[in-house]
Amino acid sequence: MTDQQQRDLLHDEVEAGTTTGLASPSVDVTSARQNSLWSDAWGSLRRNVLFWIGAVLTVLFAVMAVFPQLFARGQDPRACDLANSKALPSAEHWFGYDVQGCDYMANVVYGARNSLIIGIVAVLVVLVLGVLVGALAGYFGGWTDGILSRLTDVFYALPLILGALVLLRVGPSTSIPIINTRGPGAVALALALFGWMTAMRLVRSQVIAVKSSDYVAAARAMGASNTRILVRHIMPNAVAPVLVYTTITIGVLIAAEATLTYLGVGLQRPAISWGLQIAAGQDSIRTAPHLVLFPSIVLTLTVMAFIMMGDALRDALDPRQRA
């Protein structure tokens, strides 16, 4: 099918009013007559306070991950003096000092990079796995769907932290690349391997819902191939729910990374990470609670930023909620 034919097809759909309401964003023939899903969503996002709080925090932490020097107030996180061990926050050093006598604010600020890298890389792998398995299962159905869905059930029955914990514990003694490094890549991969199931189910149900719609039947009648229908017609419609899911999941995975690192199987010293800081501060929680408090607050704000944006996106992208 040529692009021209497809444009005509979409055009006819709109005229006849047979679309599912989620017109393909790749060819936007609807813009002249009615608002698209995305411009409607933007309109409602713009007025959502929680979205703006989340967006501002996300930008802040993203800048912090790329240019931590800007936020460290001129301190080097690795320049330490044991004389300052566990010193409390002061006007000069807002977050005080850690056990080693290093400036704590610089350490907390430099921790953003690992958290964000792991969260984003893990979510990308989750998307690749989830979209691939989900699209195959939903589109082909039958025994393909049966096998892939059972496989998903098996992984789904294992809690995320648990599966990643076991894999990362045995990982370093294996010869599997990436998994045996104890680095951010290993943590991201372990999280993704035990966290792709919800994405798969989401994509699968979207594909099944769209597959039986009129415009897919029309495309098939015009001789479009399986690949083309999947890529041009079905995928664009799954974008909205997957986007919401992705945003929230980045937050969830960042929290999971901190937990795994806290439990001792994630990032290892001398890496700078909030999970390591919380684990180290735990021992002096009575004398120097700021050592647990500051990385905890920053970690929570990061997770919250993504969850708030995801929540706002869901409200904005769900046309049924609009009165």
Binding site: Q282, I285, V292, S296, M304, M308
Partner: peptide
Amino acid sequence: LVSTTVIVSIPILVLAFLAQLLFGL
């Protein structure tokens, strides 16, 4: 709505320490 968003965003790990600090210590 706001408080559930906040609670969901606090990792269990952090919440456990906050509870220990506030209600315990």
